[in-house]
Design a protein around this nucleic acid. Structure first.
Lengths: 239, 239
DNA sequence: CGGCCGGTTGATAACGCTCAAATGCGGTGG
DNA sequence: CCACCGCATTTGAGCGTTATCAACCGGCCG
């Protein structure tokens, strides 16, 4: 599936309702399809983008690098997610969007989006809403990384990914793809690779979760949610 | 100054340009003025707000409480800031907005804002932009709390507050108000009160910054910026 | 004057980092 | 098919940062 409109319909449908006219308008959106290799960046710090992005498959990351070369990952974008909608109103990128795994994306020209939003207020409202939900996720990550212990942090992250994957129809049973390394996980949670490894083994030994070879398996979802104190409200998904 | 329109003009003026017509429209906004005591909340978790907020004076905080009663502060709002614009498109509050210090605020009915935004696309664009800048700040806080050492974290926070206060015309020389306790600071940076105290004394002893009695004084701004690795780009202020 | 809140100080322990090395594993070339 | 290489994961040991607990100080307000 490489139709930008379809992805928007699916993604925005998770957080609100679209009329048939809105959907038709979204389907009229034209953009460029592009393949990315692992580690390749699309939008970089300082860029003035003229496109937003949608993810067809693979996995994207949003991150910043500190002067000493430390990376902080701010978000992951699963297939059907639409990163960088904020570029519609933020001129200069203060972070970088890239592929963590080989990915296929769509580049959506801003004018196309403005055209649809101008004629369809509900689409504008939902796209705005999507950017606000991203902000809510940043807040949750701030809380998670600031005050949870390593194992609870990690459990919380896994809960979020699994919940989002399920909502997007990307999970089978209690399994979903998460093609990242332990180093990526460390740069997400703000902990060293060594500690990521040890924490991961604890969760594994406790029979809660298996994360290996880019696959995430929730072996005991209830327990995972419990130690993570995971409450999905902040994702603002439609019930 | 308790005119909501004037505050919006000032605040949005920091991040973009408004035409005279836009300004007139903003001045037509009517809302309720309210005084808050220290510790009083305006919008709570689970609320479905019908108003946004502007700060006339004092200081507001946005925060969440963990099940064990740990507080994470996500933002501070200085006078002229407009918190909770995101309630325009996010139905349910997943966090709480309250006063850290005695404050005077304006409650801005959503319909008033929609009325102005419908007729003035530039106002809509700037309000949207404002919510996106909030998100950029959350990202920076995530990075700060995840990978900086205590003293660098604190320096970074002080740099941000000072920069925002200066931009809003709230600072004299290298001094501005910051009416929070060391405990508040701890709940912001995700560290214990004891450690806040010790870190604060280090910065003080190093002659970089003085924070006492609700006043923040940058004694050596250059050095503060240096150890914080502070780069104000993420605030997206107009040059 | 007494109480309360915020700030300060000390001692101890937990958590997570760093450095360093070893293991496993998939892919490539001989 | 095997040897080798590079990358990710795993393991060990020692250290540093920060948390926790507890007590004390000092100012402000009733």
């Amino acid at each position: 599936m490489t139709d930008i409109g379809e992805v928007f319909i699916k993604h925005l449908g998770l957080i609100g309702q679209l009329s048939d006219e809105d959907k038709d308008a979204l389907l009229s959106i034209k953009g460029e399809v592009r393949d990315l290799q692992r580690g390749e960046d699309v939008l970089k710090v300082g860029d003035r983008p003229s496109h937003a992005v949608v993810v067809f498959n693979g996995l994207l990351q949003r991150y910043t690098m500190s002067p000493q070369g430390k990376r902080q990952i701010h978000s992951f974008y699963l297939p059907t997610d639409a990163p960088c909608l904020e570029t519609l109103h933020i001129v200069v990128m203060d972070n970088t969007l890239g592929a963590v795994a080989p990915s296929r994306i769509g580049l959506v020209p801003h004018p196309e989006l403005f055209r649809v939003m101008d004629a369809h207020p509900k689409v504008l409202a939902l796209i705005w809403r999507e950017t606000l939900i991203q902000a809510a996720i940043f807040r949750e990550w701030l809380m998670r990384n600031s005050q949870k212990l390593a194992h609870a942090q990690m459990a919380h992250f896994f809960c979020e990914i699994m919940t989002r994957a399920r909502a997007a129809g990307l999970a089978q049973d209690d399994t979903c793809d998460l093609p990242i390394t332990q180093e990526d996980l460390g740069d997400t949670l703000g902990m060293s690779t060594v500690h990521v490894n040890r924490t991961l083994m604890m969760l594994r030994a406790a029979g809660m979760v298996e994360f290996r070879g880019g696959k995430l398996m929730a072996l005991d979802w209830e327990k995972l949610v419990e130690i993570a104190e995971f409450d999905p409200t902040y994702l603002h998904l439609r019930p």
